[in-house]
């Protein structure tokens, strides 16, 4: 295996990891505030189709990305109104959000199937991007790849180092205490949920503008759910989400290379099962392994909160 092959492989790992990272880091913030949003898949799909439609309509991928963020946030807002204001069951509402997102995205996208769009341009930095190996590996990506890492760094810093981050974690660990010392639990949770929608929208935009620059119904193919698993895999820690996303990206890509490496007697579909099986195995290992009991799930995750008036 030559250097070029390894390089190409690493590039595809980055591409496969980016949507997972974007979706998972937003869900992490939401869960840190105590809200379990199972609608990631739906928000991603809506983000993907809106990014695509806007880019095709206006010719501007920047507007497409912006629209995807707004689309994801509107979806998250619907989830927030139901679960935070109307105190609906978070599991059921998250499922509803995904079902609705699948339907809405196919409806919007019906006219765009088969429409081509230019792949999101790479940011090229004169000089640096032309370096051998390091150039394409570090300086040859599009904006969303850099954004995914930047957001992760920012979230890690925000949660650990800032006062607002501390409040957000307090709301997720003990909503009653946070409320009794005067923080607006519901408002904090709204911000966290909206942030989750924003990054899920970005994750969708990456899929339809860069990963496979086209619109296909249900093109997220379960990535929203894998992102949810990633958050648990990472024990709700941003850096581990980053690591986990790249490991999962690697698993996704492994199947492509095993298939490309000649006929090894295994049907392609069996290889395609790998990411889903890997998710199950990983979930089992973290739930059963020696880490058990130190999983650090926010104490109020999934529980509705209503201030006593």
């Amino acid at each position: 295996m030559g250097l070029d092959t390894i390089l190409a492989m690493l590039l595809t790992v980055i591409a496969a990891a980016t949507p997972l990272l974007l979706a998972a880091i937003g869900e992490l913030v939401s869960e840190k505030a105590g809200v379990l949003n199972l609608g990631v898949e739906g928000m991603m799909l809506v983000g993907a189709v809106i990014a695509f439609a806007t880019t095709v309509g206006t010719g501007s991928p920047a507007l497409g990305i912006l629209a995807a963020m707004i689309g994801g946030m509107v979806m998250a807002l619907a989830f927030g109104v139901l679960t935070l204001t109307l105190m609906a069951n978070q599991v059921a509402t998250g499922l509803a959000l995904t079902i609705f997102g699948i339907g809405l995205s196919s409806l919007i996208g019906a006219d765009y199937i088969g429409t081509p769009v230019d792949k999101l341009a790479s940011l090229s930095i004169p000089g640096l991007s032309d370096l051998p190996v390091i150039g394409p590996l570090i300086f040859g990506h599009d904006i969303l790849v850099y954004l995914s890492v930047a957001i992760t760094v920012a979230v890690a810093w925000f949660l650990k180092k800032t006062r607002a981050g501390l409040i957000l974690r307090a709301v997720g660990e003990s909503d009653l205490s946070a409320h009794s010392i005067g923080y607006d639990v519901i408002r904090v949770r709204y911000f966290a949920v909206l942030f989750g929608g924003l990054t899920a929208g970005l994750a969708g935009a990456y899929l339809s503008l860069s990963y496979t620059p086209m619109w296909v119904e249900g093109m997220t193919a379960g990535r929203g759910w894998i992102a949810l698993a990633l958050v648990a895999f990472a024990s709700w820690r941003p850096w581990r989400v980053l690591g986990g996303a790249y490991i999962f990206g690697g698993v996704t890509i492994l199947q492509l290379y095993l298939q490309g490496g000649g006929d090894i007697g295994i049907p392609a579909q069996v290889m395609n099962m790998l990411p889903y099986l890997a998710t199950i195995i990983v979930l089992t290992v973290i739930s059963a392994g020696p880490w058990r009991g130190r999983l650090d799930a926010p104490a109020c995750l999934g529980k509705p909160f209503r201030p006593a008036s």
Binding site: A78, T93, L95, L97, I99, F100, I102, G103, L104, L107
Partner: peptide, 12 residues
């Protein structure tokens, strides 16, 4: 796909 939208709305 109108079907899915209606189903999602109904559950919402």
């Amino acid at each position: 796909a109108v079907t899915g939208v209606f189903q999602g709305m109904l559950l919402f």
